[in-house]
Design a protein around this nucleic acid. Sequence first.
DNA 1: CGGTACGCCTGAAGGC
DNA 2: TGCCTTCAGGCGTACC
Length: 281
Amino acid sequence: MPELPEVETLRRTLEPHLLGAAVIAVSLRRRGVCTFDPPRSAAHRPDALLRGGVVLALDRRGKQLAIIADDGRALCVHLGMSGQLRFEPDPPPRPPPHTHLLWTIAREGRITGRLRFTDPRRFGGVWAFDSPEALRRSRWETLGHDALAADEAALFAGLTGSRRAIKACLLDQTLLAGVGNIYADEALFRARISPHRPGGTLDAGACAALARAVREVLGEAIAAGGATLRDYVDADGQSGSSQDRFQAYGRAGQSCRCCGTPLSSARLSQRATVWCSTCQS
DNA sequence: CGGTACGCCTGAAGGC
DNA sequence: TGCCTTCAGGCGTACC
């Protein structure tokens, strides 16, 4: 389940393979995973997907990745639940199941590998734009601050008057971009705040603690290479180890690593939620 | 506005 | 062993 740390790890591991490299061929194997803005006829879709371009930058906001070409063409990739973006120096002749997009990558006229987008559950997708500005306007304008730089004042302002459960607020990408179900539970555990507490009841001090906890859990997860639960691997196919450090997520019924109390669990905002009823209030 | 529910989609896991 | 059900969930949308 890729959240901000997994997408950031992916961005970092893609960079050495893609920055300054040319896209010499594109194979779109399942049309439905791509959205073209503006719309493109079938003949022009490979060009919109960066064929003939050189990768200038890899950017990220929350859980979304942007691939920017030197001429301004821009792709936004969202991994959804099960998406993978992998660079293969020596790709197998037959792409794995659920391979939806393939880019052939070259440097100085020689093929260096293949970039592959795979997504069994198809909750993810790729969006193609004419310019980085069009991408940001269409996909990123409604997103809140990037959670890696979670700002306590902005969080406090966003939560003021809210009666929604704080966990639901953390999952709201328009408030803070990049936190998903895993790191919401982890950040609330670290900040010792109950997931059920209405957002508006957090004072400035609690918001500062929560913003700090969000930055810390995300930063530490990036340092661990992200979390590999089912599908996630980085651009080189490497697993992460962030899951070994989880205090709350996936530990329902197990004892709290802080006080020993069995961890509580419930569904909150349609999401499995785990917390310690002793440590968190 | 908020909250609740649902649909999308597949593979893993559990029950019988 | 094999079939069936349940669950995992990001996000857009519908509806109260």
